Amino acid sequence: MNNKKFAGTGVAIITPFNTDKSVDYKSLEQLVNFQIDNGVDYLVVLGTTGEAATLTKFEKTKVIELVCKTNAKRVPIVIGFGGNNTSQIIEQINEFDKFSEIDAILSVAPYYNKPSQEGIFQHYKLIAEASPVPLMIYNVPGRTSVNINADTVIRIANKIENVIAIKEASGDMQQIMQIIKNKPKDFMLISGDDALTFPMIQLGASGVISVIGNAFPKEFSQMVRNALSGNNKEALASHYQMYDIIQNIFTEGNPAGVKAILHQKSLIKNELRLPLTPVSKLHYKNMKMMIAKML
Results as ranks from 00 to 15, higher is better:
F6T: 11
G10T: 09
V11W: 05
P16H: 04
D20M: 10
S22P: 02
V23C: 05
D37P: 08
D37L: 11
N38Q: 13
D41C: 08
Y42V: 04
L43R: 13
V44Y: 13
T48I: 12
G50N: 10
T54S: 14
T56Q: 05
I64L: 12
V67Y: 10
V75Y: 11
S87H: 13
Q92T: 08
E95I: 05
D97P: 03
E101V: 00
L106H: 06
A109G: 08
S116W: 13
S116H: 12
Y124P: 11
K125E: 15
V133Q: 02
N139S: 13
P141S: 04
T144H: 11
S145E: 11
A150I: 09
D151F: 05
T152M: 12
I156S: 04
K159F: 03
N162Y: 10
V163M: 07
I176V: 15
I179D: 03
M188D: 11
I190P: 10
D193E: 15
D193P: 04
T197N: 06
A205S: 15
A205G: 07
V208F: 01
S210Y: 06
V211D: 03
G213N: 11
N214I: 07
S221P: 07
N226W: 09
L228S: 02
L228P: 01
N231W: 01
I245Q: 01
F250V: 14
E252L: 03
G257T: 03
L262R: 09
K269T: 12
E271Q: 14
L276P: 00
L276S: 04
S280K: 02
